[in-house]
Design a protein around this nucleic acid. Structure first.
Length: 225
DNA sequence: ACCCAGGTGGCCC
DNA sequence: GGGCCACATGGG
């Protein structure tokens, strides 16, 4: 019981440091929840800048719409999302998702999300091209569900601060979900901040100069940098 | 000339 | 259940 309280405050301490240093991130950057879903699929192992170009192409062609993508010629879709990389598999997977949503929910995201979170999650995971992180990004940022998103930056941050040593997705996710207040806005902001941290400081080699977690990181205190 | 991006699935052992 | 690998574009 006492350990739980300590871990909670440690996590919130990290959150506060990140928020103070980077400010609010305003995630997810999208106008609709369908746009969130498209972005979540396109950004897999890809920089957001490239995804923005792809989404802009879809918008210019008025193609950012579930029924339209479900019925578009695959070559056309490939050419529009080409800047986001892996465009052949991404176009196929995106189209399959849209077809699935159209067939089973008449392309209605309200129907799709208006169910038990675990049920939606399992359904998302059953679709080709949607793994843990994409599914949870969709649940949290498009569906407003209480699901913490874990990514490679999260694993790295936890390892370096020593707050939790775990590599398995589910293990790390439940760690955050157990030790954080059940607050969707907090989940959204924390994940976004961890990504921002990772982009700036937590790369392969420790770069601790100016890092907001320097004083709680095993690389931050002495010999490194 | 590397290395990395807001990962995932397939194949092998 | 883990360790590789392909997938593709664009930026540092």
């Amino acid at each position: 019981m006492c350990n739980l309280v300590i871990t909670m405050s440690k996590l919130m301490n990290i959150y506060k440091k990140l928020l103070k240093h980077f400010g609010r991130q305003h995630w997810w950057p999208a106008e609709t929840r369908f746009e969130v879903i498209v972005g979540a699929i396109l950004t897999q192992n890809t920089s957001w800048k490239n995804v923005e170009k792809a989404i802009l192409n879809l918008k210019k062609e008025k193609m950012l719409n579930n029924k339209k993508i479900a019925n578009v010629d695959i070559r056309k879709l490939e050419s529009l999302i080409q800047p986001s990389g892996f465009y052949k598999q991404k176009s196929e997977r995106l189209k399959k998702f849209c077809k699935y949503l159209d067939r089973n929910y008449n392309s209605d995201l309200n129907k799709f999300f208006n169910r038990n979170t675990d049920e939606i999650r399992n359904e998302l995971l059953s679709l080709n091209g949607i793994g843990n992180e994409t599914a949870d990004s969709i649940l949290l940022y498009a569906g407003e569900k209480l699901k913490f998103v874990v990514d490679a930056y999260t694993v790295r941050m936890c390892e370096r601060t020593g707050i939790k040593n775990a590599k398995k997705y589910d293990e790390l996710q439940s760690f955050f979900e157990k030790n954080l207040p059940k607050n969707i806005k907090l989940y959204k902001e924390f994940h976004a901040l961890i990504v921002e941290l990772g982009k700036n400081f937590c790369r392969r080699k420790p770069e601790c100069d100016g890092c907001p977690l320097k004083d709680v990181c095993k690389y931050g205190s002495s010999s490194h940098n």
